[in-house]
């Protein structure tokens, strides 16, 4: 009798523990799921927006993701200023680029926005003598700020870029 009771108790305990742990597991996975959707101000993250800009707009150049350890070199943006970011760059002669950042706070957002403007000025400096046909895009880049996120896209399709960024 004791053995039966013990076995029954053990089984009940294991079942209860299993249910409890899986509930926690489901809870935390759905919690992290909601965190990932709330991490950006919109329903899509800045990296998702950058990817969508890259994949939905027709670019003349071959754009590739810029390595993160090059962000400071090319944009002057340091890692302590953003939560997430993605930059797509080309070969340097065609004015096409994507840069999306989720800043850590308002002050960092201003720093990043200034860095983006400086980057565009540098591109203008490079283009004005040898690729004047690129200047039009650099004079009218898409730069959108939403909350602590800033999205920049230089392309031949500003309308599409604005539609994607929202």
């Amino acid at each position: 009798m004791n053995k039966k009771k013990l076995t029954a108790l053990l089984l009940a305990g294991v079942t209860a523990l299993t249910m409890g742990l899986t509930a926690c597991g489901d809870g935390s996975s759905s919690e992290s799921g909601s965190k990932s959707s709330n991490s950006a101000e919109s329903s899509k993250s800045v990296t998702e927006i950058a990817d969508e800009l890259r994949n939905s707009i027709t670019f003349k150049d071959n754009l590739n993701p810029l390595e993160e350890d090059m962000y400071e070199k090319l944009y002057g943006v340091t890692a302590d200023s953003y939560k997430s970011a993605k930059i797509y760059i080309g070969g340097g002669t065609i004015a096409e680029e994507i840069a999306c950042f989720e800043a850590k706070d308002e002050a960092s957002l201003e720093t990043i926005k200034n860095a983006i403007n400086k980057r565009i000025e540098n591109m203008k400096q490079s283009s004005k003598d040898y690729s004047p046909e690129e200047m039009g895009k650099l004079e009218d880049p898409v730069i959108v700020t939403k909350g602590n996120c800033v999205y920049m896209c230089i392309s031949d399709d500003n309308a599409k870029a604005k539609e994607i960024i929202g």
């Binding site: 992290s32 965190k35 993250s45 800045v46 990296t47 993160e68 953003y82 939560k83 997430s84 970011a85």
Partner: peptide, 11 residues
């Protein structure tokens, strides 16, 4: 958590 952690990994 993979999508949210991907950017975090890059950062």
């Amino acid at each position: 958590g993979d999508n949210s952690s991907n950017s975090a990994d890059e950062s």
